[in-house]
Design a protein around this nucleic acid. Structure first.
Lengths: 259, 259
DNA sequence: GTCAATCGGTTCATTATTCAAACCAATGGT
DNA sequence: ACCATTGGTTTGAATAATGAACCGATTGAC
């Protein structure tokens, strides 16, 4: 693992529920030497990627990332466009919709919208990284990724988050086969109990997945008709988003299913 | 210069007018070895900070930065809050308002708002980094920075962007003295001809400047009354923004001038 | 008040990476 | 065919990162 990778990995330890991290804690979270972590943090600090919160000496993400994100959005308006698309996805399905993005070997939830159609809904506030094998989004991305990426992901431990999580690699590979045929993925209570998620991959200019759009609903509300409707809407939304960010579908993607 | 600093510096070469950069060009822009640049880019790519645009093999900012920015905004809503404040600043002054943020030894424009009050206005679209010695924002930040930071900045070459740019270090230090007394800075056509900029510093939790709010107007419209009005509004806006992001003013800041 | 643990931060010999300058193969213009 | 330029790779010599131990300052238990 190179120095840059180590430094950037430190940034991944920040999350909504852990916005500030002290030196010692960061050291524990990162499996690195304290001195190393200290130097890395200081370089990150010099570049504005982290800053020390006034009160304690704990570190948090700095203002430097804002400018980079603004630049990225200016050239590839993924976030803006996806929010718009998520909104209509939520409205039409009456369920929670979210967009996740692939960064390295992680899949992170980036934006989400809720529907007011039902009193109960899936909430996304506390969601960190999404497991590839246990979420619709993860499976959708895997299904259209390079085989070596798939095997890298599946060679890591596959925790069972619920009693329904599928952890058998053969069964997962079979799922991916189906997803490639159908164009959408689903996971029934694989990550959280009672949550049924459907997802469709979104592609970049290189015809490889950049992430996924997903609809998450309480299992109880998923009838065959509702599921079909969700898959239909997802296919449309994923196609729109892919096109609007200048992406292309792979040759073998079952596009005809998207109306 | 450490490895991490080098890698992150590469990211600074991206801008609105240069969203994609090839390996060779990046090498030229960075004063590093091509092999090094290649390795750094690959590590950045693995972490999702850059990606290769499909068509050519040129690099551009990746989706990974979006998540970091979203996390940062969630804990310190600098961008959201500043946009709101910039809007009222533009409306009340009838001029272009912008917010810049200090990252390492650079000051970058981050957000801006225009007014419809006049047909002519200062535009910010192409603005990259702001010079410390030639802009109101830069001077405002410098005036309340550590002496060692000031001398580091002023020991670099001070280009004369216009015939009005003040490049004499003694005169700049004298300006900083005034700014510390008054609480706002100004620069008359120091960066762009015909542009008069006023600015006020914004502070973080550590009582040090995180950036500046500024109002930029065509010199021709700046009467003594207009300037006084702008300074008044700026002081109010900077105070609001500082407070809303949880920041504190230094002990010696002339706060009483803010109504 | 003392002790031990923990905190952020620092030091220094050892070790690994980065540098510079070549070199490839591929592409494109003349 | 030619030359220049592209993205990418290799080589000993220079430079940087690393990790165990170490500081002084807090903190909490007793």
């Amino acid at each position: 693992m190179g120095t840059v990778t180590k430094a950037l990995s430190l940034l991944n330890n920040f999350s909504l529920s852990r916005p500030e991290i002290g030196l010692s804690e960061m050291t524990r979270l990162s499996d690195l030497n304290k001195a190393t972590v200290y130097r890395l943090l200081r370089e990150l600090q010099d570049q504005g990627f982290v800053e020390q919160a006034g009160a304690g000496r704990a570190y948090r993400l700095g203002a430097g990332v804002l400018r980079l994100a603004a630049l990225r959005e200016a050239s590839v308006p993924l976030l803006n466009v996806s929010r718009e698309i998520l909104r209509t996805l939520s409205d039409r399905t009456g369920e929670t919709a979210h967009m996740s993005v692939l960064r390295g070997q992680k899949l992170s939830a980036l934006a989400y919208t809720y529907s007011r159609a039902h009193a109960t809904k899936v909430t996304m506030e506390d969601t960190g990284d999404l497991a590839f094998h246990a979420t619709g989004s993860g499976l959708a991305v895997l299904a259209f990724s390079d085989p070596e990426f798939v095997s890298a992901v599946l060679s890591r431990p596959l925790p069972a988050y619920t009693s329904n999580t599928i952890t058998d690699r053969k069964r997962i590979l079979a799922q991916l086969e189906t997803i490639r045929r159908v164009g959408t993925a689903e996971s029934v209570a694989g990550f959280e109990d009672e949550v049924h998620s459907h997802a469709a991959p979104v592609f970049g200019t290189d015809r490889r997945p950049v992430g996924a759009l997903a609809v998450a609903a309480p299992c109880a509300r998923i009838t065959p008709q509702a599921a079909a409707e969700i898959r239909r809407e997802l296919a449309i939304a994923a196609r729109q988003l892919t096109e609007r960010i200048g992406g292309f579908f792979p040759e073998d993607f079952p596009l005809e299913r998207a109306a």
